[in-house]
Amino acid sequence: MSEKSVNPMLKLGLELGPVVLFFVAYTRMKDREFDLFGQSYEGFIVATAAFIPVLLLSTGLLWWLTGKLSRMQLMTAVLVVVFGGMSIWFNDDRFFKMKPTIIYVLFGGLLGIGLLQGKSYLRSVMDEMVPMTHEGWMILTKRVCAFFLALALANELVWRLMSTDAWVNFKTFGLTALVFVFFIVQGPLFARHSTEEDKT
């Protein structure tokens, strides 16, 4: 199914909205405890419980509007349900904090497997957005693979060594900013290996 045209700002809002709402919910509830079904839950767990349906709704709307979801969007939704659900079931925030690590290790590992085979799996999902030569895609894939593994390590260090407040800020703003800066820095690579001129 071909991807439908959708307002870029609406798409961005649906992609980032659940994370922002989680941050707002956490900041409002972090110092409170909630007694539910005979058990006491910290604000973080309650915010996580609210985040899961919001993310699933957002992902469903993206699929309905665009007619397509990336593998990363699907995997993120699955892991949010699994690890978020485990945090709620066991009343333990560590499961949800590990989720970004698992996501980045999975995708970094998949890209690494492709590289060992001389392939760029990244190209198969981004080729239409960023037309480049094979060499350019291989270079970018190596960089993205290393970047994902570095983000996984960073997430582990933050949630294990720092406070929950620090981790929530890192997840909401730090990871988003790092991804944005990373792709901005790749500008010279995109320009050097672009194939757009070949199509004109």
Rank of each mutant, 00 (worst) to 15 (best):
A25S: 14
G112N: 11
R94T: 15
F37V: 04
E42D: 15
A49G: 15
G67N: 02
F22A: 04
A154E: 00
T164F: 06
G84Q: 07
I52C: 12
L149T: 02
I52Y: 06
I139A: 15
A150P: 00
V82M: 09
T133P: 10
Q186P: 07
V130P: 02
A166H: 06
M75W: 13
G187D: 04
F96D: 12
G60P: 03
Y41R: 08
F23Q: 02
N169G: 06
F173G: 13
G17N: 00
F96P: 01
R143I: 07
L21Y: 04
S163M: 04
F95K: 05
Q186M: 15
F173I: 09
R94A: 15
R143A: 14
V80Q: 04
L106Y: 11
G118Q: 13
L151V: 02
L61C: 04
R28K: 14
P188D: 05
S163F: 10
L69D: 09
F95P: 11
A25P: 07
Q73A: 13
E33F: 04
T172G: 10
W63D: 04
G187F: 08
L157I: 10
T101D: 03
V168D: 12
L21V: 04
D31G: 08
V82R: 05
R94H: 15
V105K: 07
A150E: 03
L116V: 07
A152T: 01
Q117T: 11
S2M: 12
L14V: 00
F190W: 15
I103G: 04
E33W: 05
V181N: 08
T133D: 15
F148P: 01
I139D: 11
L62Q: 15
E33A: 12
T176L: 12
A50I: 07
T195P: 14
P8C: 00
P131E: 11
N7R: 00
E33S: 10
F83L: 15
L157C: 11
L16Y: 08
M9G: 00
P131L: 05
V105M: 13
R32A: 11
F83Q: 03
G85Y: 03
V20G: 01
K11V: 03
R192P: 12
A47C: 05
G114R: 07
F173E: 07
R32D: 13
R160Y: 10
F147D: 01
L115Q: 14
W64N: 03
A49Q: 06
S5A: 12
T195V: 13
S58R: 05
V168W: 03
F95A: 12
L65T: 06
V144T: 14
R123Q: 15
L106M: 09
Q73R: 05
G43R: 14
L149F: 03
G85E: 00
T66N: 05
L110I: 09
K119Y: 06
N155W: 12
